[in-house]
């Protein structure tokens, strides 16, 4: 890693040059190289933490993913299918189930669910409204169609509402939330602390590289190495994921969850590319400064 600038050698001033030629340092390039490596490492860890913070730990990201993959309409269709099948086993016509599902505002339901999840208040779907509405709809159906009271019992209607509610919860809830919940609540604060520490370390290393190097071009060179490395490491992860196509091969039970999973994780990995782009931009900036500084140093010597 020794990349000392070798001074121009003028044979006519050989004797004079011989006494003023600076010694080539071996230790310094290694030390600065190591610092550059450490800066890249810290930036990589910081990237991972920030992606997690901006995606897995963000309710807005989840809501955005749902909106972009058409999650709400898929859930609606799946709930319609589920209630229709329940209707076949319980005497409710298809039209009843279809019309009832249309009355549900899935966007609001999911938003409430996610917001309450991320705020720590609950990881469960609020089924109170659904239960009441469904029961009310059934009672109205019985009344409107003059259904003979002998054709039904209170316990059977309660069973029916309970089954329908189970289907509703199954459709609306996002299963892996129950596991994420533990990690989000426990790690959220820790993640923030980790990120702050990493930022501080990165700044310290950066400042050390910058201010302890006597030559400006070297400062920028080592910073450039670090930023290029960070860009590469940030870009490798999503590249491997995209090339393997593993996200689309997930084996999930319903189309809505599948689409949400694919959209969510595809978007999440895209964040790595955004950070790679930022690091690449910084690398270009530092490279330009390096060239300018190097030109001045070479000219001076």
């Amino acid at each position: 890693m020794s990349d000392e600038v070798e001074l121009h050698f003028d044979p006519e001033k050989k004797h004079e040059h011989h006494h003023s030629r600076p010694k080539r340092s071996v230790v310094k390039p290694i030390v600065y190289g190591f610092m550059s490596f450490m800066l890249a490492f810290v930036l990589f860890l910081l990237t991972v933490c920030m992606v997690i913070r901006l995606t897995l730990f963000s309710s807005d990201f989840m809501i955005g993913s749902m909106a972009s993959c058409g999650y709400y309409s898929m859930v609606k269709d799946e709930l319609k299918d589920g209630l229709t099948a329940l209707g076949h086993a319980s005497g409710l016509p298809d039209s009843f189930c279809a019309e009832f599902v249309e009355t549900i505002d899935f966007r609001q339901v999911e938003m409430n669910y996610i917001v309450s999840f991320y705020s720590g208040s609950s990881t469960l779907v609020d089924d109170t409204n659904f239960k009441q509405s469904f029961r009310a709809a059934i009672d109205k159906y019985i009344e409107d169609n003059n259904i003979d009271k002998s054709k039904t019992t209170e316990s059977s209607l309660v069973n029916l509402v309970d089954k329908a509610t189970d289907i509703y919860i199954d459709n609306v809830s996002i299963p892996f939330f129950s596991i994420l919940a533990n990690y989000i609540y426990k790690l959220s604060g820790t993640l923030n602390v980790i990120m702050m520490v990493l930022v501080v370390i990165a700044v310290i290393i950066g400042l050390l590289i910058y201010f302890t190097n006597e030559y400006k071009h070297r400062r920028h060179r080592y910073l450039c190495y670090a930023f290029i490395t960070s860009a590469i490491t940030a870009a490798i992860i999503p590249t491997i994921v995209y090339v393997s196509g593993i996200v689309a091969k997930v084996n999930l039970g319903t189309r809505s969850i599948y689409n949400l999973f694919v959209t969510y994780f595809s978007s999440m990995f895209r964040y790595f590319y955004y950070f790679a782009g930022i690091y690449l931009f910084l690398a270009i900036i530092t490279f330009v400064f390096f060239r300018i500084a190097y030109g001045k140093t070479a000219k001076h010597h």
């Binding site: 890693m1 020794s2 990349d3 000392e4 600038v5 070798e6 190289g33 550059s36 490596f37 890249a40 490492f41 990589f44 071009h217 070297r218 060179r221 450039c224 190495y225 670090a226 290029i228 490395t229 860009a231 590469i232 490491t233 490798i236 490279f287 190097y294 070479a298």
Partner: peptide, 21 residues
């Protein structure tokens, strides 16, 4: 002027990346 050798701006980051990963 090895420091002007652009290869260092490619090889070293690649080595660093592999080490980090």
């Amino acid at each position: 002027h090895r420091s002007m050798n652009g290869k260092n701006f490619i090889i070293l980051p690649i080595i660093f990346s592999l080490l980090i990963l």
